[in-house]
């Protein structure tokens, strides 16, 4: 469909090159570069105020970047806004429904703005309403919807014109676990069925881990790591076995053993990093017994993306009380 692509085999639906957004003196996005393959589910994971939403707003042509380049669906976001808009769908972080209209009317409004032919539009509307299980609520005013219903309607709306690329900005924030799970299923189904490229922002670790083919960690307006969730977790170098003990003990007992990669003692808990945690657990208990360490409880866990994030940035993802700068980034993201 595009001469640009016929020469190279790999196609990217999103190409971002050193994108920067400054609000006056404040730098919200500080030189972000990444590429998203066609048909991929790509995640931007980071704490609130990291610059994720600002990045999305630039890619969806809602705000102009200060510098840097980006192409979405092979169109330049600065010079070819109209074609970018034709090829994308977006579910915003903040609500964006007209609550004086019914659910169905909101969808009709959307369909007509995307110039869908009437019959096709009505067909799509009933399809997406079914998908998000709102068929029976279609004709009541949105102001009477619950938060979860509104979110589902917005997602239905974003899917309606079957765009090539969908942006989901914190798609499941504030939803109950069942609804969240359902929305994850829709997202995966959409990706499988229509080969839609999906880029989502989230500060939920499980969401990024469960959905994304690749994840970029965003912190302070920059990408600090980018890889598949598996590879990112491998950076931790193994599983973590933690032992709860009665008396403080000497670290050396464990550090001198070869297959224990890392030892951390926090008060009465010893954390050991090992490969193949399930098998090594018994060995660890043996060692403890031999050295007369009384173990009260033992726990094995696989490293999460959160562990990796902490390792890289020195802070957790859900720490709501971010720095002053993070808050500024958030406020600017909202206003703009």
């Amino acid at each position: 469909m595009n001469q640009f692509n016929q020469n190279n085999k790999i196609t990217f639906d999103i190409e971002v090159d050193s994108l920067v957004k400054k609000f006056k003196e404040f730098i919200a996005v500080n030189g972000v570069s990444f590429k998203v393959n066609s048909g991929e589910i790509f995640g931007l994971l980071g704490p609130n105020g990291a610059g994720k939403t600002t990045t999305i707003k630039m890619l969806t042509t809602l705000i102009e970047p200060t510098s840097g380049k980006a192409r979405v669906a092979n169109y330049d976001i600065k010079n070819n806004k109209s074609n970018v808009r034709k090829n994308i769908g977006i579910v915003f972080q903040d609500p964006s429904l007209d609550d004086k209209l019914t659910g169905k009317e909101n969808l009709i409004f959307h369909g007509m703005l995307y110039n869908l032919e009437n019959k096709l539009m009505l067909k799509r509307i009933s399809e997406v309403l079914k998908l998000v299980e709102l068929e029976d609520k279609a004709n009541i005013l949105v102001e009477n919807y619950s938060g979860g219903m509104k979110r589902r309607l917005e997602i239905a709306r974003g899917l309606m014109h079957q765009p090539k690329v969908i942006f989901l900005d914190e798609p499941t924030v504030g939803l109950d676990p069942q609804t969240r799970r359902k929305i994850w299923d829709y997202i995966i189904e959409l990706n499988k069925k229509h080969k839609t490229t999906i880029i989502l922002t989230t500060h939920y670790i499980e969401e990024a881990d469960f959905l994304c083919n690749r994840v970029a960690f965003v912190d302070h307006g920059k990408i600090v790591a980018l890889d598949t969730p598996e590879k990112l977790k491998n950076k931790m170098g193994g599983d973590i076995i933690s032992l709860k003990i009665d008396f403080p003990t000497n670290k050396d007992i464990f550090t001198k053993i070869k297959w224990i990669k890392n030892v951390k003692i926090i008060n009465d808990v010893i954390e050991l990093t090992v490969d193949d945690g399930e098998k090594k657990m018994l060995d660890v208990l043996d060692i403890a017994k031999k050295n007369n360490i009384k173990v009260n409880s033992v726990n094995l866990r696989k490293p999460s993306l959160e562990d990796v994030f902490i390792k890289i940035t020195g802070k957790g993802i859900r720490e709501e009380t971010g720095s002053f700068k993070d808050k500024m980034r958030m406020i600017h993201g909202r206003i703009r």
């Binding site: 964006s96 429904l97 007209d98 609550d99 703005l113």
Partner: peptide, 14 residues
Amino acid sequence: QFGFLKEIMVTPNS
């Protein structure tokens, strides 16, 4: 304020 304008502005209309 209700975010609805974004929904309109992101559509491919002049």
